[in-house]
């Protein structure tokens, strides 16, 4: 990992693998959406609305996964002083916030016909909402502090402090009785849903993850470009 501390080497690698990730993401989305919208059977109880699950569940997974990426990048930045770790954490935050918003929005749209309400203050929903606020706070820290080096140091603390919420989101449905159904895929005794629904769900999860990877790499690339522009501007002022 240390060899990618050199931004030029990282950029070269990112440019080389990005087209493949985009293609893989498009293929996965095509397969996943076909499986979700056409191949998967409608639920005997929920009817066609069950198809919202295929966009809702992966978004929720990704919202948590991206925060984990952010927290781990911040930890790597503290321990190894990897120069790109801060950029990785910074660039993951807006993407994760959008996934979190998607999970909340699609969940709300799904909850309307199923639970008869757009929103309930239940453990899983509330902890997901808190995750959204943590994302917004983290982004606000980067925007509030002018000096990027200082902002990076402070943002690490904020990201790691907020990581405490992740297990709360994950286990909220087990710890509190809630309307939201408990974990049904990642369970000790195997998935509790039928394979005809499971495989489109997993393909959609892979598609979302590939999309995140592609967007993340593009964002880091832009961040490196921005740093370079900043450095050039400062150098130009020095020469004047």
């Amino acid at each position: 990992m240390q060899q990618f501390a050199n931004p030029a080497r990282f950029l070269a690698l990112a440019n080389r693998i990005l087209p493949f990730i985009w293609v893989a993401a498009i293929v996965a989305f095509a397969a996943g959406l076909y499986g979700a919208l056409a191949a998967a059977p409608a639920d005997y109880q929920q009817g066609e609305t069950v198809r919202i699950m295929f966009v809702h569940v992966p978004a929720a997974w990704l919202a948590m996964f991206v925060y984990a990426v952010m927290a781990i990048s911040s930890a790597i930045a503290i321990v190894f002083r990897h120069p790109l770790a801060d950029a990785a954490a910074k660039c993951a935050a807006p993407i994760g916030a959008v996934f979190c918003f998607l999970a909340l929005a699609t969940g709300s749209i799904w909850g309307r016909p199923m639970w008869g309400t757009w929103w309930v203050w239940d453990a899983r929903l509330t902890s997901m909402f808190v995750l959204m606020l943590l994302y917004l706070g983290y982004i606000a820290v980067w925007q509030a502090i002018d000096d990027p080096h200082r902002a990076a140091l402070v943002a690490r603390v904020v990201a790691l402090a907020g990581a405490i919420n992740l297990p709360i989101v994950k286990f909220s449905v087990d710890w509190w009785n809630s309307l939201h159904q408990p974990a049904s895929v990642l369970r000790m005794d195997g998935p509790a849903i039928h394979s005809s629904i499971l495989w489109p769900l997993l393909v959609m999860a892979i598609a979302y993850t590939l999309l995140f990877l592609a967007l993340h790499l593009v964002a880091i690339r832009a961040e490196i470009g921005q740093r370079k522009i900043r450095a050039l501007r400062i150098a130009a002022i020095g020469e004047r």
Binding site: T126, S127, L134, G137, V141, A144, V154, G162, N165
Partner: peptide, 21 residues
Amino acid sequence: VTVGLRRGGLLVSLLVLPLYV
């Protein structure tokens, strides 16, 4: 986290209140 910021007041609330949950 906000000690050196001129307008840190609102940011503190946004950062700390989620951790108070």
